[in-house]
Amino acid sequence: MSSITFDHHADRSKMAVSDEVAIEIRNMNKWYGSFHVLRDIDLTVYQGERIVIAGPSGSGKSTLIRCINRLEEHQEGQIIVDGTELTSDLKNVDKVRSEVGMVFQHFNLFPHLTILENCTLAPIWVRKEPKKEAEERAMHFLEKVKIPEQAHKYPGMLSGGQQQRVAIARSLCMMPRIMLFDEPTSALDPEMIKEVLETMVELAEEGMTMLCVTHEMGFAKEVANRVIFMDAGQIVEQNEPEEFFNNPQSERTKLFLSQIL
């Protein structure tokens, strides 16, 4: 699984974790109908952290990070993002969404818009930026993810890896303080996984706060400062990557690691 190796080791010098809280989740519970999908989740994420969330399929990883920008609604407990609590108040939801970027497994680019338009739509209409400024920044981020020459093509003409890098650039154009990744590489062929992971490593090197659901354990070792293992809707174990991989405590974690490594 974690066969991806990185050409150079991630530069951890700027990956500083501050003691400013970015996300605070307290005693959060969520049900789909009568199915208790997330149970008593407590999690504090500090500004600058790179957290990898792992766990078997169906354990609630996606649901957890989708609650953080309220693509899903929680029923009990609190989620506070950058000081704003997520409630049914739409103003708060909008505020949180403007600070949290999200990258999906299936990219979810807008197929009827060019790459550049994908990147400038939200800045122009949500952040009310002048078109020219939004385009300049979009080009800046497209250069960063190394596909400026595709700016005027449509998503359907790009490879999967390129599309996912556009999706990352699209999120970055909203200047988020936190980035959520939901299995960003699981829909990609091996040679494309690497280009996406390298983009994510660069992002981490710049100090972005990241929550990343992934099975790429190489990425976790290289970049993460904390690995969270979930099972059956609960956080079962969390630790620094070194400890997590070499010295897992719970039986479930051991079983999971033996299956994927």
Binding site: D94, R97, L121, M174
Partner: peptide, 17 residues
């Protein structure tokens, strides 16, 4: 696909947008 709605939501676009 549902992902189109989710992408729009996650970028902070409101319903009319």
């Amino acid at each position: 696909p549902k992902g189109q709605y989710e992408a729009a939501d996650s970028l902070g676009l409101d319903y009319p947008q």
